[in-house]
């Protein structure tokens, strides 16, 4: 039962519950108009303690497409937070006005604090470098819709695998499905942290490979998930210059990729995917953003427990 629950961590929901959300997300993606009155009379509050246009728009568009309405703030200076109000007091007040709340906060664990004091469902829309569960749901719905399955896939993750929370969550989430393999493509300095390898991959006997260059493995991949490699993450300039081009995806690197491979990226992209790739039919990152909205629509419906149309 998802009604009334919070979503704080991507692992909060069981496989069956995620399945329920993804199935509804798929239904919505095929016929969004059918759901245009699902949340009529309901209000979503967006509490954005740090700016994030993309995520906020995605949530707001999701609620508006469900026929609901939206209140909120997009940066704390324009709210009572600037006067020093605690998260507990803010959420208790908002819960008097809204039916469901989305919170983004620079501090790790802030959405959990909100949930502790909230009478309405709270959705974590990103808390610092910690969790971003609706991005994980977005990735899952995109993969399920475009590949037709969440199991038996070879998933290449490329870029900053050390600090990228999106990547860590995706590894955890995809590790719950059968026969998935991971190819982890990154410079040595930005490899997946040991605890993920130990606690998630090795513990569950999941096959994985660590490499430094996309070209060496691209023909094996069903999914290529790109993330940004930031200059400041490197220990020295020499290393950065040596490796930076390896992490920019362009048409020449795609030469040996499977015809039905899909390229994903959590966005915003800076330069890690060359613009020429946008024309490739395998480039699915903008479609992914659309699935993000559909899965948020499904999540709102489920947490509110409103009638599915």
């Amino acid at each position: 039962m998802l009604k009334g629950r919070h979503l704080l961590d991507p692992m909060d929901f069981s496989l069956e519950e995620i399945e329920e959300i993804l199935n509804l997300g798929e239904k919505i993606s095929k016929n969004p108009e059918k759901f245009s009155k699902a949340c009529q009379g309901k209000i979503l509050a967006t509490l954005f303690y740090e700016p994030s246009t993309r995520t906020r728009f995605s949530f707001e568009a999701a609620m508006l497409r469900l026929g609901g309405q939206v209140i909120g703030f997009s940066e704390p200076n324009s709210s009572s937070v600037a006067k020093g109000e605690s998260i507990a007091d803010t959420i208790r007040t908002i819960a008097c006005y809204a039916d469901i709340a989305v919170i983004r906060h620079p501090k790790e664990g802030a959405p959990r604090v909100a949930a502790m004091y909230s009478k309405i469902p709270v959705i974590n829309a990103g808390d610092g470098g910690h969790q971003h569960p609706t991005q994980t749901l977005t990735d899952l719905l995109t993969i399920k819709s475009l590949k037709g399955r969440l199991s038996n896939l070879t998933i290449g993750l490329c870029g900053d695998l050390k600090f990228g929370r999106t990547v860590h969550s995706l590894i955890k989430a995809m590790s719950r499905y059968k026969d998935n393999k991971f190819i982890l493509i990154s410079p040595k300095e930005l490899r997946v942290p040991d605890y993920i390898k130990r606690e998630v991959l090795q513990k569950n006997n999941i096959e994985f490979l660590e490499v430094e260059r996309i070209e060496d493995v691209i023909e094996k991949l069903d999914i290529l998930y790109m993330t940004r490699v930031q200059r400041e993450r490197f220990f020295n300039e020499e290393e950065y210059l040596r490796l930076k081009d390896s992490y920019i995806l362009d048409n020449s690197k795609l030469k040996n990729a499977k015809e039905d491979m899909i390229i994903l990226h959590p966005l915003p992209r800076v330069n890690e995917i060359a613009v020429e790739v946008d024309e490739d039919k395998r480039a699915k990152y903008f479609e992914q953003a659309k699935y993000g909205m559909f899965v948020r629509m499904a999540l709102i419906i489920k947490l509110l427990g409103v009638e599915e149309c």
Partner: peptide, 9 residues
């Protein structure tokens, strides 16, 4: 970066 550093209650 933990929320406990600002929400003291």
């Amino acid at each position: 970066r933990c929320v406990t550093s600002i929400e003291k209650y």
